[in-house]
Design a protein around this nucleic acid. Structure first.
Length: 426
RNA sequence: GGAGGGAUGGCCGAGUGGACGAAGGCGGCUGUCUUGAAAACAGCUGUGGGUGCAAGCCCACCGGGGGUUCGAAUCCCUCUCCCUCCGCCA
């Protein structure tokens, strides 16, 4: 949510940001108009109410019955006037609030100009792509041949885009989750296990609603929304809270499955386990002081990169361009890992500074050590990392000519000592 | 799922129609006293919004929403959550 003050004091800033996102800016004027109307109504309604409050107090003090009746009659007339004003206000306020909630975050000046993901800028590439003296297989061949990946039965259970992990495949995923959680915990993130189904206002707070309702799963009977990312739960964690400045920054990590209604048509683009309706992810999330959010962003980016490095996966860091930037983000970097079999860079993480955008939506503030009142915290989120695509890269990059896959060394403590996944032992 | 009882400020807890944004206590902050600390005493101690250069003034908020009334923490309706007992269940 953007600050309504921005629309009053610097509407051009909002317009320019929308233009940079290649979005229509006409609703800015609508907000200004509604806000002016709201304030005019509010002032009228409040002064009437003040008058009434005063008169009511006077009635309470009046002992003489006739005089009392007179005063009450006068107040009844005032009441009708007030009713109509307040009815109008009550209709207007949700409209204004809903409209304000549709504006995406302000784009940071540093975000490069661009229409879509093809114009994202690669900042750096780290690690060497593995070389093979044979033709490396894609995971959709490699996995089934190893017996760790079963597409047919996944489809039988749940339809297209679902799969079963068998034996060491399932174990590898579990090892990756534990490895990531343990690594982040060592880096100062507190682990949280959160609900995977949350209430509507929680999804709204992180910015996935109302705009992306089409991509979410929703139980209509119970008002439950399946989380599309742990970012939703981790934003909701401190909703409507006032934090102490001394406690900041607060860093969390959480493992959750993620549920998304992907409306992409079937085809090569979605072959394998790259994109599904359900996938696992370890998330990082930070609440911090506004002056600290750039530092925390660098920290989070480094922590996400650290996972890639430890797994020995070649990766690159992309600066998202204005056209690809998410709704709640002011700036974002994506991490792609190289998958040698399918020959693709796979997006495994997205690290964003939302500044006070989510905090404002979720009403998450802190009490400054000095000065009065409260201020909104800054929040950052980043995958650390998304599991299926990391699995793809681990499998494809570490495959050998005989079809076996060597387990990266850092994962072996969680693999019960298994060093190699051999064909047909699963 | 059934029956009953609850929800008040950072915390505990009083308040059943008018002087209540809310007693009292605890905690916290400031001051006096003290070499310092403790104790004692005094004062202060919520959030959001409108308006104003500011001091301030005004409005709202006693779990959420709606209603009755000139006036609601207090009465009525409704929802949510919590507790106790029964049932069911991993």
């Amino acid at each position: 949510m953007l600050d309504i003050q921005l629309f009053r004091e610097n509407p051009d800033l909002v317009r320019q940001s929308l233009v940079r996102r290649h979005q229509d800016a006409s609703a800015v004027d609508e907000v200004i108009k509604l806000d002016e109307k709201r304030r005019a109504l509010l002032q009228q309604a409040e002064s009437l109410r003040a008058e009434k409050n005063q008169a009511s107090k006077a009635i309470g003090k009046t002992k003489e019955p006739d005089q009392r009746q007179e005063q009450i009659a006068a107040m009844q007339a005032l009441g009708d006037q007030q009713d109509s004003l307040e009815t109008e206000l009550k209709e207007l306020e949700p409209v204004l609030k809903a409209l304000l909630g549709t504006f995406p975050n302000l784009v940071d000046d540093r975000v490069p100009e661009g229409l879509d993901d093809s114009e994202n800028q690669v900042i750096k590439t780290v690690g060497e792509k593995p070389l093979f003296d044979f033709e490396p297989k894609a995971h959709w061949d490699l996995g089934p041949e190893l017996g760790i990946l079963d597409f047919e039965r996944g489809t039988k259970l749940s339809g297209t885009r679902f799969y079963i992990l068998n034996g060491l495949g399932a174990r590898l995923q579990r090892a990756l989750i534990s490895f990531m959680l343990d690594t982040h915990t060592k880096n100062g993130y507190q682990e949280r296990y959160t609900p995977f189904m949350v209430k509507e206002d929680i999804v709204y707070a992180s910015g996935q609603l109302p705009k992306f309702a089409d991509n979410l799963y929703h139980d209509h009977e119970e008002d439950f929304w399946w989380v599309p990312t742990a970012e939703v739960s981790l934003t909701g964690l401190h909703k409507d809270e006032i934090l102490e400045e001394n406690d900041l920054p607060i860093s969390y990590t959480a493992y959750t499955p993620c549920f998304r209604r992907e409306k992409v048509s079937a085809g090569r683009e979605v072959r394998g386990i790259k994109r599904g309706h359900q996938f696992d992810k370890v998330e990082m999330y930070i609440y911090c002081h506004p002056d600290d959010s750039e530092n925390q962003y660098q920290r989070m980016l480094a922590d996400a990169e650290g996972i890639c490095s430890k797994l020995n996966l070649p990766y690159r860091v992309n600066n998202l361009c204005t056209g690809d930037l998410g709704f709640a983000a002011s700036y974002t970097a994506d991490l792609d890992v190289w998958a040698a079999g399918c020959g693709e860079w796979l997006e495994v993480s997205s690290i964003s500074n939302t500044r006070d955008f989510q905090a404002r939506r979720a009403a998450i503030r802190y009490r400054p050590k000095e000065g009065k009142g409260t201020r909104f915290v800054h929040t950052l989120n980043g995958s650390g990392l998304a599991l299926p695509r990391v699995m793809i890269a681990v499998l494809e990059n570490n495959q050998q000519k005989d079809g076996s896959v060597i387990i990266p060394e850092v994962l072996r403590p969680w693999m019960g000592g298994v060093e190699v996944i051999e064909p047909d032992t699963n």
